[in-house]
């Protein structure tokens, strides 16, 4: 017999369920007094460097219905393209920018909203630059394992054209599902879980 590798198996995922807000955004779900504020509710402060933007949108199911019980987390680089993470070895990120945010989709109109900054470009593994992007992670009732995707910026035409991830999408008509629409400083990014306009989801 050959040696055993001895690796453990990853703990399997389960749905976050309809009451995910109790754990992740208790103040939003009217459980006050346990935590001062919901984690990830604020990403920036007065001193944060970079161009202020709003990222908003909705999650839609395979019948076009609003998903009103999702929680979205985003993760992004600062304006200089550095991540606020111990695993960031290229430099020190803006200490006034968390890089991470968390927001539920509204139980009324299904809209999520982040006040953040436009991220700088970060390198791909081979040194090529990726286009500016924000990584999304979506959990909800009915989603058995969190869905990863990315939002790209519509005005970054030339950067998007050379982005290594976008280049890997075989069906070019699907590229548009990862690009937000822009109006002033507000970017709208609707995520379609299923169907003709299905968003490209990632296995990273």
């Amino acid at each position: 017999m050959v040696q055993e590798l001895g690796y453990l198996k990853e703990t399997p995922s389960q749905t976050a369920g309809p009451y995910v807000h109790i754990g992740l955004t208790p103040n939003y779900s009217e459980i006050g007094g346990v935590y001062d504020a919901d984690l990830g509710a604020s990403m920036v402060n007065d001193k944060t460097h970079g161009e202020r933007i709003t990222v908003t949108g909705r999650i839609l199911d395979g019948a076009g219905g609003l998903v009103r019980d999702a929680v979205i987390e985003i993760w992004q680089a600062d304006s200089a393209g550095l991540y606020n993470s111990p695993s960031e070895l290229r430099g020190t990120a803006d200490p006034n920018f968390t890089g991470w945010g968390r927001c539920p989709t509204s139980s009324d109109d299904g809209i999520f909203r982040f006040e953040t900054i436009k991220p700088g470009r970060v390198p791909f593994k081979d040194g090529r630059k990726m286009a500016p992007h924000i990584t999304f992670w979506i959990v909800a009732r009915g989603i058995n394992i969190g869905l990863h995707t990315r939002m790209y910026f519509p005005e970054e035409t030339s950067a998007n054209a050379e982005d290594p991830l976008l280049a890997r999408i075989e069906h070019k008509d699907r590229l548009a599902t990862l690009v937000a629409t822009k109006e002033g400083s507000v970017y709208t990014f609707d995520v379609h879980l299923q169907g003709d306009r299905e968003t490209v989801f990632l296995d990273m």
């Binding site: 009732r141 009915g142 869905l147 999408i169 879980l193 490209v200 989801f201 296995d203």
Partner: peptide, 18 residues
């Protein structure tokens, strides 16, 4: 899960710094 599951295959990419 019936209406909340993607039907297209996931796009695979080895982890980047993101």
């Amino acid at each position: 899960s019936v209406l909340r599951s993607p039907q297209r295959a996931l796009l695979s990419l080895d982890g980047t710094i993101s």
